[in-house]
Design a binder for these strands. Structure first.
Lengths: 198, 198
DNA sequence: TGCCGACTATGACCGCGGTCATAGTAGCCG
DNA sequence: CGGCTACTATGACCGCGGTCATAGTCGGCA
């Protein structure tokens, strides 16, 4: 999450995602995004003529692609890839962050869904796309591990659902308990799916 | 969710929860709450001298107690109580709402967490309390069904995590798929916990 | 040199919304 | 009746923030 030297436009999208996941969409100001990205304020209307909605949508899209790409790295980190191992890595990304940086941020896609699902169709769609962009690689990884086709998608949805919910609870409680709990409880179920014929 | 004839104060708290779960905390105005509750605007500062923060906190607390009480009703609706049956009822409350009323609202506690966890300590704590108020009865119900003590709490957290995440995804996708998926995939795991000694 | 496009810079506008101040009403009690 | 308490009513204040308008810089290219 620390790719620093990109163009100002990309930095603004990145910063928007960072701020949104901390404060929510409503509480994140355009000027604030520019300042955080160390980008000129005037660039906002130049790069994002669609205004805040466009910026938010791109931030959500960025987050979805980021999450999707992470899956490959998680797999690479596993000596022997298993569903529970993948899920443990997904959870660990959050427990690590919370332990080292505090419970400041949540998932930007969740924030956008909560704040914009009803008010902005385009942002809601961006969130749905982001979830799909994230679920896809997870499901594919499960399939590669021997999980039957249809169940792979279902289990990927379950994994991401449990993760998102646990992020919420952990943030509220300022305790990683919920995250570690879902990893522990869901692991056996996920691994069992590789043995079942489906 | 339709208890109409209470005092104006209670109606405002109820309305706040309704609006928050649709639009998020930031986009919900005080005047809007009063209007929705058909309560006089002047009553806001009278009943909630602590301002918006107090109102939001009470709305979150109300939502937590509401969710906790629902558990008993879900159990009563089950001929033979099982963990998977309880979870299915919890999920069904949402799928029913989404099918009949559209995907307008999410969980108010989730909304408050996303929007206020970083900016307001008291609201974050209210959210944590709400999650606890909700998890408690679920865990107790699991214990009554024969789930061993420590696992009951863990599974309750898992159930609520998965439910919250699936609510998010379903809202974004405007499709109850995620909700029905987690109910289906998690059911067997929950029921299996009643047989295991632990 | 002079034009042009891309990007930057800033101030102004304007609505929204939380809060405060101040006053009004209604009912009860003494 | 006077006064007290609970509640209601409204207008004003004021900062925030998204957007717009307008102008400035800067590099390349002919």
């Amino acid at each position: 999450m620390a790719e620093s030297e990109r163009g100002p436009r990309e930095r603004m999208v990145f910063s928007a995602a960072q701020l949104i996941r901390r404060e929510g969409v409503g509480a994140t100001g355009m000027r604030e995004v520019a300042a955080h990205a160390e980008a000129p304020r005037g660039s906002l209307q130049h790069y994002f003529p669609g205004g805040k909605e466009q910026l938010v949508n791109e931030a959500v899209g960025w987050a979805g692609r980021y999450a999707g790409k992470r899956v490959a790295r998680f797999l690479a980190a596993l000596a022997e890839p298993t569903p529970s191992g993948l899920f443990a890595e997904m959870v660990r990304q959050w427990t690590d962050e919370y332990r080292t940086e505090g419970f400041a941020g949540g998932c930007p896609v969740a924030a956008a869904t909560v704040d914009c699902a009803e008010s902005s169709t385009s942002t809601r769609e961006a969130a749905a796309t982001a979830f799909a962009t994230w679920t896809g690689p997870v499901a594919e990884a499960l399939r590669d591990m021997g999980v039957p086709g249809e169940r792979a998608g279902a289990l990927a949805t379950l994994m991401i659902s449990a993760l998102e919910g646990a992020i919420l609870i952990s943030r509220a409680e300022q305790d990683t308990r919920a995250l570690t709990t879902v990893a522990r409880e869901l692991g056996p179920l996920l691994d069992a799916a590789t043995h079942t014929t489906g």
